[in-house]
């Protein structure tokens, strides 16, 4: 199943040669356990670099994807999502002006997205985020993100050329969870609770995820 998503590797080529990027993961969860997901990859801050890279056929041995290839590969991601159980309302948005790509969809149960998110991120070669899973228990109103750093992430990172490594220096990862009821407690010290108490945000550098210094695990208790 995973091999189907090798296409997204081409986005990674663009990532590699842009100077900084942002990954945003938003999950809106209803009390019942259904909800929506929005995944965004934003290369806008390095759009001039991406634009010049895209003029080339290949760079340092990596093939540079064309707009058509990116569209086609995203189309395949959407097709995969549409076929996934419990997933509906799949939408993609590509902004070639600013180089922002986003995919959103609705899910019946949080367990449906468990694999999906991983797969999509995995295809972006963001290996540090792979070992995650989500659970939600509507009875006790308890949401959990389990996360474990993989040694593979740092090993992969160390294989990169120094100039490619530089790319990750300013890259950031944002995750936002929104709930219908106020949050009572969240365990991750890096996470912030919004004024309304109904949202939790964690904004961190990608490098910390690669080297295992940042932990994304979070246990969130919601008002019953």
């Amino acid at each position: 199943m995973l091999s189907k998503y090798k296409y997204l590797f081409s986005l990674f080529v663009l990532l590699c040669f842009s100077s900084c990027f942002q990954i945003i993961e938003e999950i809106n969860l209803t009390d019942a356990g259904s909800g929506t997901v929005n995944l965004t990859l934003n290369l806008s801050a390095s759009k001039t670099k991406v634009a010049s890279v895209m003029l080339m056929d290949s760079i340092q041995g990596y093939k540079v994807p064309s707009k058509q290839t990116i569209q086609k590969e995203l189309g395949e991601v959407v097709a995969y999502l549409k076929k996934s159980p419990g997933i509906s309302n799949v939408q993609k948005k590509v902004d070639f002006e600013n180089y922002i790509v986003s995919v959103s969809f609705a899910f019946k149960d949080i367990a449906n997205i468990d694999n999906v998110n991983q797969n999509v991120l995995k295809k972006l070669k963001i290996k540090g985020l792979n070992n995650s899973s989500y659970t939600y228990n509507p009875k006790i109103k308890f949401f959990q993100r389990s996360y474990q750093h993989t040694k593979e992430a740092i090993a992969e990172y160390n294989k990169l050329k120094p100039e490619v490594k530089k790319v990750f220096k300013d890259a950031t990862y944002v995750s936002i969870y929104r709930f219908e009821q106020p949050v009572v407690l969240c365990t991750n010290p890096l996470a912030k609770i919004s004024k309304s108490k109904k949202a939790v945000m964690l904004n961190t550098g990608i490098l910390g995820l690669i080297n295992g210094k940042t932990d994304l695990s979070n246990r969130i208790t919601i008002t019953k």
């Binding site: 942002q22 945003i24 938003e26 934003n42 806008s44 801050a45 390095s46 759009k47 902004d95 600013n98 922002i100 944002v174 936002i176 929104r178 919004s194 004024k195 309304s196 109904k198 949202a199 939790v200 945000m201």
Partner: peptide, 14 residues
């Protein structure tokens, strides 16, 4: 110039 996101304090709406 480039596009980025800001999140409001109320509910982290982007």
């Amino acid at each position: 110039s480039y596009k980025s996101y800001e999140y409001n304090e109320e509910n982290f709406e982007s």
